[in-house]
Design a protein around this nucleic acid. Sequence first.
DNA 1: CCGGATCCAGTCCGATACTG
DNA 2: CAGTATCGGACTGGATCCGG
Lengths: 133, 133
Amino acid sequence: MSISLIRPPAEAVTREPGTTCTAMSDILNRIGDKWSVMVVARLGNTGTLRFSQLRRAVEGISQRMLTLTLRNLERDGLVSRTIYAEVPPRVEYELTGLGQTLLEPINALWEWADTHGEDVAHARERYDSAAAE
Amino acid sequence: MSISLIRPPAEAVTREPGTTCTAMSDILNRIGDKWSVMVVARLGNTGTLRFSQLRRAVEGISQRMLTLTLRNLERDGLVSRTIYAEVPPRVEYELTGLGQTLLEPINALWEWADTHGEDVAHARERYDSAAAE
DNA sequence: CCGGATCCAGTCCGATACTG
DNA sequence: CAGTATCGGACTGGATCCGG
């Protein structure tokens, strides 16, 4: 599997407007939220992490949201959860094979954010100041 | 600019946990929602479209959400809006240059959804049926 | 240390009705 | 045709307290 770097042929996106579109819609509903993306990205480049490490690494995420996000990712087979019966208890999270494949698109997005983030911020400023007059 | 297809070096993602992370967070807040992704993807492979065409093409989107989504995309400099002073009125939407660059990561994600969508659905079924017992 | 449970404010979003 | 305005329900996410 390879990702076209230049404009991919239309079929890659079109296929059947009603079919692939809803599949995409489903996917976006699960993994399309901020926290999921950031957790997967973090696990992707750091490897296995404990709950508290993730909490500190992701920055800005609340305990509740981290719990929910991890639960959903586990449900979708993207993250595995390993519990160690120790005192104090320890739980480690890690990307599954499926989760690893998700790194490619996520990293692509991440790079885009890095490269064009300022352009977007700039465009917004122009738009807002134009609207304010 | 090129996107690593294999696991990119860590720097691409890490850089400064507190810096790039919030930049990514910002980007995800704007373009990370379902409708934005689907509208951009649609404009990307169909070219210029009118409001009503987009409404039919995206499928499932309400008029309100389409309006808001387009407004935000325009604000962020990703989509351009052209009004034709005719009767009946006509408004056409098109990706800007910046918007076109966003197609790469979006198409990558789309392909992922195409390829692994079933895996996710399957994982979810297993998880749910395991939890139900 | 990990995370479940509850409460509550803020937000989102669809439906509907109305304008240029 | 291409919007804007308003309302009400649903969902989200944070804070806090509690349990294993």
